[in-house]
């Protein structure tokens, strides 16, 4: 009896909720259709990760692989260098997140304090320019900076140290990669935080000032809390993308001498020449990366929800 009435209540609540959100659902409809047609329908293509895809039979009719369809995954896991490329991928992403995640926040906070509007706009515009310069060109600049007679070595030798071919030693690669990411993306990534900061109600500053807070404290108590939701959402996505390191850039910067630290999953797949050739294997690799990424997002999202009440769902 009780169960039934509970159920009744549940459905009537659901119905109320549905009724209340009918306008919202209506305006969402084009979006939902979009997701179905352009995202969910093509997802049947993922099954080729479990098949020996050949063009002639197509996606549906290609034969399933051995090992219950997991042949390509086992091949990946059994690669002698699997551990190396996995470790490099994860570490490179982690370091990038660790160091390049805070910089746009700091930049946005600083920009927010700049008083001269023209100066502020100039800084912002200039700082996001590297984002638009093609990676090929940026990497060309980096290799030039790092060559024996390049800018970095000129600075190094100014301090009386020996010139080094930085790109020849595995130990420098991660640093180089992370710094270049910071250089290229900080300005661009700060834009979102600028938008979040403009959400702050100016009266809060007033109130804070009356309480005798100095400007640093204002940043601490007003600005930072106001951008935290944005930051958390971005962080969750970043962590979800941990398996997809910016592989084009690695490709342009690395060389065989530093495969030890620089070779990532993406570059291995590229080198093996299977992009556009062995669709099954490359789909399996991609699916592996996706699954890990999605699991990480679910976990971080849960943690974030507990700690900060910001959550993706």
């Amino acid at each position: 009896m009780r169960a039934i009435s509970n159920l009744k209540l549940y459905f009537s609540n659901q119905y109320k909720s549905f009724k209340r959100s009918r306008f919202l659902l209506l305006i969402m409809l084009p979006g939902i259709i979009y997701y179905i047609i352009f995202h969910y329908v093509p997802m049947y293509g993922l099954i080729i990760a479990f098949k020996d895809f050949n063009i002639y039979d197509g996606i549906i009719n290609s034969p399933w692989t051995s090992n219950y369809g997991f042949k390509h995954f086992l091949e990946l896991f059994n690669l002698p260098i699997f551990y190396r490329i996995l470790k490099n991928t994860v570490l490179l992403s982690l370091y990038t997140i660790l160091f390049s995640f805070p910089t746009p926040i700091i930049l946005a906070l600083c920009l927010n304090e700049a008083k001269n509007k023209l100066w502020k706009n100039t800084v912002q515009t200039v700082s996001y320019l590297p984002h638009f310069i093609s990676t090929v060109v940026i990497c060309g600049m980096i290799t030039n900076f790092l060559s024996l007679n390049g800018l970095v070595n000129n600075i190094v030798s100014f301090f009386g140290l020996e010139r080094i071919q930085f790109l020849l030693y595995p130990k420098y690669f991660r640093t180089i990669f992370v710094i270049s990411e910071i250089w290229q993306q900080t300005g661009w990534n700060s834009i979102l935080y600028m938008a979040a900061l403009s959400q702050v109600n100016p009266e809060l500053y007033e109130a804070c000032r009356i309480d005798g807070a100095n400007r640093f404290q204002q940043i601490l108590y007003i600005n930072i809390p106001s951008i935290i939701p944005t930051a958390i959402i971005l962080l969750i996505f970043k962590i979800g993308g941990i398996m997809n390191v910016g592989f084009e850039k690695v490709l342009l910067l690395y060389n065989p001498n530093i495969y030890e630290t620089a070779d990532v999953i993406g570059t291995y797949v590229y080198r093996r020449g299977i992009l556009g050739a062995e669709f099954s294997f490359s789909t399996a690799v991609g699916l592996f990366q996706s699954v890990i990424g999605f699991i990480l997002v679910v976990i971080t999202n849960k943690i974030a929800g507990k700690v900060s009440e910001v959550s993706l769902w």
């Binding site: 659901q14 909720s17 549905f18 209340r20 959100s21 919202l24 659902l25 305006i27 969402m28 939902i32 997701y35 352009f38 995202h39 969910y40 329908v41 093509p42 997802m43 049947y44 293509g45 993922l46 080729i48 996606i59 996505f237 979800g240 669709f279 789909t283 991609g286 699916l287 996706s290 699954v291 990424g293 999605f294 997002v297 993706l312 769902w313």
Partner: peptide, 30 residues
């Protein structure tokens, strides 16, 4: 719509959309 806490099926739609960030069918089916 998704920003409204009372949206019918909010959690479902959030996962429904986020999922596509990670999984896609690849270029051939597209």
């Amino acid at each position: 719509s998704l920003s409204k806490k009372y949206l019918f099926g909010r959690k479902f739609f959030s996962i429904f959309t986020t999922f596509t960030l990670f999984f896609n069918g690849g270029i051939i089916p597209n």
